[in-house]
Structures are given as C-alpha cells and as structure tokens.
C-alpha cells in the first residue's frame, strides 16, 4: 500500500468501474476509423489514427475475460508506453480522481492493485502490467 496522492482516470467497461493511472498523453477520444489487423491476437482490436499518430486499440474486456460486445466506434482512453500510443476500448469515461492510497488485492496475480471510490474497489490497469504480464507482443 502506497500512501502518496495519486491521480487516476476512471472509466466503465461492461458495468465494471476501472481505473488507469494518469498519463501525460491520457485523453479520451472516439475511435471513428478502426482498421483491423491481419494478426491473431485477441487483445488487439486494430489501429486508428489520432492527431497524426497511429494508435493501437486494445480489447480491454479480454484482459478480464469479460463478455463485452465492442461497438464499431468505441470510446477509447489514450495512453503512451515506450514511445507508442495505445487506446483502451471502454464503454464510457467517468472522471479523473486523486486518491491518497492504493491497495493491493492479494488474491489476484494480475491487475491486483485497486483504489477505493465511495467504498467501492476500483481495480487499476497499469501499462507496464498490460505489456509484461499479458505479453501482448510475444
């Protein structure tokens, strides 16, 4: 448990409230043109184009094994990792929050950190964990 004030962006996915640490490139956008890729990776929905940048759109529901039907123009949360831009497909962006404490769920191996918002556990999606634990590019 860390006790420094941290900022997170909250969003909803299939009625689940999730959070992602505030990134310098974080922003919400509507993915109007999603180009599917001829690759066999369940986590990657395709690529899009935003403000002159290629953005890889990720299937956030697959991280948790959720039964979620992705719309044709999903809302996405942009973040950057190692110089590349990615977008998490979400249902709806909620808000940005500042929390004093991050908790650890010992029963989970991946995405086991969470914050409390209105006494509700909101699990955190970290970019590092997305690419190292899930091994998207293996």
């Amino acid at each position: 448990m860390s006790s420094k004030n941290q900022q997170f962006i909250t969003f909803k996915l299939s009625d689940r409230l999730l959070a992602m640490p505030l990134n310098k490139d974080s922003q919400f956008f509507s993915c109007e043109h999603l180009l599917a890729l001829p690759i066999n990776n369940k986590y990657i929905a395709g690529v899009s184009y935003l403000n002159g940048q290629l953005v890889t759109i990720l299937r956030t529901d697959k991280f948790f094994g959720l039964n979620w039907k992705m719309p044709s123009h999903p809302q996405c949360l942009l973040f950057s990792y190692q110089g590349d831009f990615y977008g998490l497909a979400v249902d709806q962006g909620i808000d940005t929050v500042t929390v004093p404490q991050v908790y650890l769920e010992k029963t989970k191996n991946i995405f086991n950190k969470y914050i409390k918002i209105n006494k509700q556990k909101v699990f955190i999606l970290e970019a590092e964990q997305i690419f190292t634990e899930l091994k998207i590019y293996v």
Binding site: Q7, L22, K24, S26, Q27, F28, G93, D95, T96, T98
Partner: peptide, 9 residues
C-alpha cells in the same frame, strides 16, 4: 473529460 485530465496533469 480531457479538460479535466489536462487540469489534473
């Protein structure tokens, strides 16, 4: 939302 994010940033 983005304004809020920028404001927090």
């Amino acid at each position: 939302l983005n304004m809020s994010i920028e404001a927090k940033k």
